[in-house]
Every structure is written in C-alpha cells, then in structure tokens.
C-alpha cells in the first residue's frame, strides 16, 4: 500500500493508505482524530469540513492521497494545548450554538474559514457561507449568532431570541 504524509494540526503525520482512502477516513481511522465527523458521506452536510492549506474542504470528498504534503487543520487543532477553547468554540458554547453537536466540528471549521476571509461578516453573509453545513437541531439562529459574536460584532439584534 502506498504511504501518505502530511502535517495535521502542526504535527507531521503519515500512514499507509489505499487509493480509495478518503481524507476523513485517514484522519479518523489512521490518526484517531475522530472530531471530524462523517454525516452524509455524500458532500451535502459539511460535518466533515477541515482546512487543507488554509481552505475549507469536505474531507469526505477528497482522497487522502491528494493531501500529500498538505497542511491540514481539524477541529482538534482549534483549542489551545491547555484546553482553552478557540474563540469560535467558546462563542458556540456561550450562545448555545449546538444541541446534539454532531454538525459542530464542521460548523466551527467553516466559520473559521469564513472569518479568515471576511473578519466581520453580516448575518446574511454568514448564512450564505453555511450553505454547505447542515444542522438538524438548532434551526441555525444560534449558530449564526455565535459566529457573529466570535467576530466581535453586536448580537443583540439578531432574530429568534
């Protein structure tokens, strides 16, 4: 079997793969990083979003072999080593941006990609950017609110209080 090597959350990672091994399976099964979830496995739901070379991608729709040499960041790479949550994670907690939590890793990674591109997005821009991230619990309002809050903006006026 061929070998693939990449950097995951700042650390070198390598392992044996098959041609058909998806990036998400390499992360979860080979590296044990099970924070990245597989929801639909058909690139609809976004639970598997990670960053590859700084860009949000669906890890269920990319082969591990294609990440050779890449810098990958997963939800496990967001908090500080001492456990202090990333500001986006903290905002999800503060604003109740999750219920069952299954979609949350993908939501947080998409939100991080959005804020890297657009540090102060409007509510409409946030909703638009989350087009490919599906949540079946929250109705999205508190997710949007958490992302607005994480960007340092006022969240007092957002709908569905």
């Amino acid at each position: 079997m061929p070998e693939v090597s990449m950097t995951v959350n700042g650390k070198p990672a390598k392992g044996q793969i098959e041609g058909r091994t998806l990036l998400v399976d390499f992360l979860r099964d080979t590296l044990g990083l099970t924070g990245t979830h597989v929801g639909c496995d058909t690139s609809q739901c976004g639970a598997c979003v990670v960053h590859v070379d700084g860009r949000a991608v669906k890890a269920c729709t990319m082969f591990a072999a294609e990440a050779e040499g890449a810098e990958v960041r997963t939800i496990e790479g967001m908090a500080e080593p001492d456990g202090t949550l990333h500001p986006i994670q903290q905002a999800f907690q503060d604003h109740h941006g999750l219920q069952c939590g299954f979609c949350t890793p993908g939501m947080v990674m998409s939100a991080a990609a959005l804020l890297a591109e657009n540090p102060t997005p409007s509510e409409a821009e946030i909703r638009d950017y989350l087009e490919g991230n599906i949540c079946r619990c929250t109705g999205y309002h508190n997710i949007v609110k958490a992302i607005l809050a994480a960007s340092g903006q006022d969240v007092s006026r957002i709908a569905a209080e």
Binding site: S43, G46, V49, R55, A56, V57, K58, T61, M62, S110, A113, L114, Y129, E131, G132, N133
Partner: peptide, 9 residues
Amino acid sequence: IGDPAVRNR
C-alpha cells in the same frame, strides 16, 4: 456553484 467547501475543490 455549490457551497464554499465545494468551490475550494
């Protein structure tokens, strides 16, 4: 086209 993650690939 698609969504942001799809557009990145």
